[in-house]
Write a protein that binds this DNA or RNA. Structure first.
Length: 305
DNA sequence: AGCCAGGAGATTT
DNA sequence: AAATCTCATGGC
C-alpha cells in the first residue's frame, strides 16, 4: 500500500512519480454530462461504498505531492481498515501503483505515443472500480456516440441508482446488480438503449447476483486471455467490451480493444491518414507496446476526447 | 441530410 | 469461415 497518513480528518496519500493531478482532473472533467461525480474548483466529489457504508468524499491535491481525501458530513470512518479501504479505492481509481517510467521510455520513441505522452504527461489510466458499472458502461456504449452514451448512463443511474444529498446537490451511486437483476426489459423501456442492450445488462446483473461473475474471479486468471474468454462467453460482451472492462476495471496491462473506433480514429489523426488504418496496420504499429497496450490505448483516446 | 458512433449477435453466403 | 444484416437512436 502507498504511504498515507491522516491529518485533521483528511487522508493524505503520497502520489507516485510521474503523476500530474491536474492532467488527471482534466480527463475526469472532459465530459460535462458525467453523472458519477462532480468536479468544482479542482476538487472531485463523489460517493464511494466502503464495506457497504456510503461515504461522500472530496478529492483534491496538495502541491501535486499528496492526494487529499476529505470525508464530508463527518463520515470519516473510525476503523483503520476502513480508512485503508478508502486509500485502496483511490489508488485503484487513479492507478497509482503502476510504474509509468517504462511506459514513457518505450513511448517516447514510438511514433504514435510520443505526442500523447508529451501532451498528457502524468496521466493515469483512470479506472472504473465497480465491475458492474464497467460492464454496463461497456455494453451501453456499444456502437453509439459518446455524448449519447453519457446521456443513457445518466438516465439509467438517475432512474435506478440511489443518491446522497449534500449542499443541494445529488451525488449518485451506480445501480446495484442486485436491483437491476430483478428488472424486466419493460422497466428499461424509457431509457432509449436497444432492447438487446437491456437484455444484456439484466443478464449480466443476474450473473453477478448469482456470484458466478466477480472481480476476484476475473483477477485470478494467470493469463488475461482466459479472463477475456470468461467475459466474451457472456451474451452481449464481445472482444471490444471484454478488453474495455479488462483495461478499465481489472487493469490487465495487455488488454487492448483493437477494434475500437476511437483508437482507429486517433491513429488516423496522429498519422494524418486519409483513410482509417486497417487492423493489420494497427497490429504492426502497436507491436512494441507489449504489456502497455492498455495504457497506449488510454493515451490515444485522450487525443480525441 | 446523411454518415457515423469507444459493437455484437444473428443470418446468409 | 467470412461477409452481410440488424439493432436503433442521436450527434454533428
Amino acid at each position: 500500500m502507498r504511504n498515507w497518513r491522516e491529518k485533521n480528518q483528511h487522508l493524505l496519500i503520497e502520489v507516485p512519480e510521474p503523476f500530474d493531478f491536474k492532467v488527471n482532473l482534466d480527463y475526469l472533467q472532459r465530459e460535462p454530462n458525467e453523472c458519477m461525480y462532480e468536479i468544482e474548483a479542482d476538487m472531485i466529489t463523489c460517493v464511494i461504498e466502503i464495506n457497504h457504508v456510503r461515504t461522500l468524499i472530496r478529492i483534491s491535491a496538495v502541491d501535486n505531492e499528496y492526494i487529499d481525501i476529505e470525508c464530508l458530513n463527518g463520515t470519516m470512518p473510525k476503523l483503520l481498515a476502513d480508512k485503508e479501504a478508502i486509500v485502496d479505492y483511490i489508488c485503484d481509481w487513479f492507478d497509482l501503483d503502476t510504474d509509468l517510467v517504462p511506459f514513457y521510455e518505450m513511448g517516447c520513441q514510438d511514433p504514435l505515443l510520443k505526442h500523447p505522452i508529451e501532451s498528457f504527461y502524468g496521466l493515469r489510466n483512470i479506472g472504473l472500480n465497480n465491475l458492474f458499472e464497467a460492464l454496463c458502461w461497456g455494453i451501453l456504449g456499444q456502437q453509439i456516440n459518446l455524448k449519447y452514451a453519457y446521456r443513457l448512463k445518466r438516465q439509467f443511474v438517475e432512474k435506478f441508482g440511489d443518491s446522497l444529498d449534500y449542499n443541494d446537490k445529488k451525488y449518485w451511486i451506480f445501480p446495484s446488480f442486485d436491483k437491476i437483476s430483478a428488472l424486466t426489459i419493460d422497466d428499461l423501456a424509457d431509457i432509449k438503449m436497444t432492447t438487446k442492450k437491456s437484455e444484456y445488462i439484466i443478464d449480466v446483473a443476474k450473473l453477478m447476483k448469482s456470484g458466478l461473475l466477480t472481480k476476484e474471479k476475473l483477477l485470478n486468471f494467470e493469463d488475461f486471455k482466459q479472463a477475456e474468454q470468461e467475459l466474451t462467453r457472456i451474451r452481449g460482451i464481445g472482444p471490444w467490451t471484454a478488453n474495455y472492462v479488462l483495461m478499465r476495471c481489472l487493469r490487465y496491462p495487455t488488454a487492448f480493444p483493437i477494434d475500437d473506433v476511437g483508437l482507429i480514429n486517433a491513429i488516423k489523426l496522429l498519422l494524418g491518414l486519409e483513410r482509417k488504418p486497417t487492423k493489420e496496420e494497427i497490429r504492426a504499429l502497436s507491436s512494441n507496446w507489449t504489456n502497455w497496450e492498455s495504457y497506449a490505448t488510454f493515451y490515444l483516446w485522450r487525443m480525441l476526447y
